[in-house]
């Protein structure tokens, strides 16, 4: 197991290196510099700013400097927020996004698994059609449609929640549902398919022949195998949640990483954009590794290969 983890880490290093290199040169290839947008800057101030951020050095020297900083975990200063480093901005915003992501994933897993299992136990009945019909609907509705609609219904019309913000516990509800809805639907479909597949296996018949209750058949014999596909979906789901949080944080004006990233994009705050991309890449790689470990733990056949 340790070897497996070590191997994945070693694999991740060149990936991150390439990601960092590409983002760096993309940034350099951009027409215009980060200080062009501020109309009031005189050439002297601009030169001074560029010197301060090391932008007057040759590009390759800048690249080496940047990579050297990266090795020390330093993502550089923000171009937009003077006096702030990118790392500080990330550290401030990430916990909010993490919280949102966790709620959304928990919501998706809970509702999706329950709906999928219920549907799989009585296929082609109303217990199947209703949750699966809703799931199909959920898959086709993007967050930027459901989010505003949820606000329209539950915040504006019914007045149960605030339309935006992240100050009260109740502010977590609508964003988490908006972000988690697609994954709820997808997980429900995967669970149903996985459970149906497992429930038709010979070993389920063996379990029934042993006199196992229906509860035991589902809980002890089917769930493990039936949920493998859900677990392998968690990898892509995590990337998706990260991307989705861009939209959800924008809609609900949540001070998380996604919103910072979008703002940084508008403000051409290149170091911030790059830092966020790199941070997300590391995050996703680590979380994917975690998912792989869970998968191996669930499936004994993989454990020995």
């Amino acid at each position: 197991m340790l070897r497996f983890i070590a191997k994945r880490f070693v694999e991740a290093i060149p990936v991150l290196f390439i990601v960092a290199t590409i983002t760096f040169f993309l940034m350099k290839a951009a027409p215009g510099g980060p200080f062009d947008t501020e109309k009031a800057t005189t050439p002297e101030i601009k030169a001074q700013l560029e010197a301060q951020y090391g932008l007057n050095k040759p590009v390759f020297q800048q690249y080496l400097d940047y990579m050297g900083q990266l090795l020390h975990g330093d993502l550089g200063p923000s171009f937009k927020y003077a006096g702030w480093s990118v790392a500080e901005l990330l550290a401030g915003a990430f916990p909010v996004s993490l919280e949102l992501g966790c709620y959304a994933l928990a919501f998706a897993l809970m509702l999706g698994l329950i709906a999928g299992i219920i549907a799989s136990l009585r296929p082609n009945s109303l217990n199947d059609y209703i949750p699966m019909g809703l799931a199909t609907l959920g898959i086709c509705l993007p967050a930027f449609v459901t989010g505003p609609l949820l606000i329209l219904v539950f915040a504006i019309t019914l007045g149960w929640y605030n339309t935006s913000g992240w100050d009260f516990p109740s502010d977590r509800v609508l964003p988490s549902i908006t972000l988690g809805l697609y994954y709820t639907a997808y997980i429900a479909r995967l669970t149903r398919a996985g459970m149906l597949e497992i429930l038709s296996q010979d070993f389920i018949r063996t379990a029934r022949a042993k006199g196992a209750t229906e509860w035991r058949v589902v809980w002890k014999h089917s769930l493990r195998g039936g949920l493998l596909s859900v677990v392998s979906f968690l990898g892509p789901a995590i990337s998706g949640l990260v991307t989705g949080s861009l939209v959800v944080e924008t809609i609900f004006q949540i001070p998380g990483l996604g919103r910072f990233f979008v703002m940084a994009g508008f403000n051409r705050d290149y170091t911030m954009v790059m830092g966020t991309v790199l941070f997300y890449a590391v995050l996703i790689i680590v979380l994917n590794l975690l998912v792989d470990i869970i998968q191996v733990w669930l499936n004994p056949k993989l454990r020995f290969d």
Partner: peptide, 20 residues
């Protein structure tokens, strides 16, 4: 496989930001 696990949409945003 590796590309699958990257936050690709962010690269697209990066591209759109940088190149207009």
């Amino acid at each position: 496989d590796i590309l699958y696990s990257l936050p690709f949409v962010m690269f697209v945003i990066l591209l759109m930001v940088i190149f207009g």
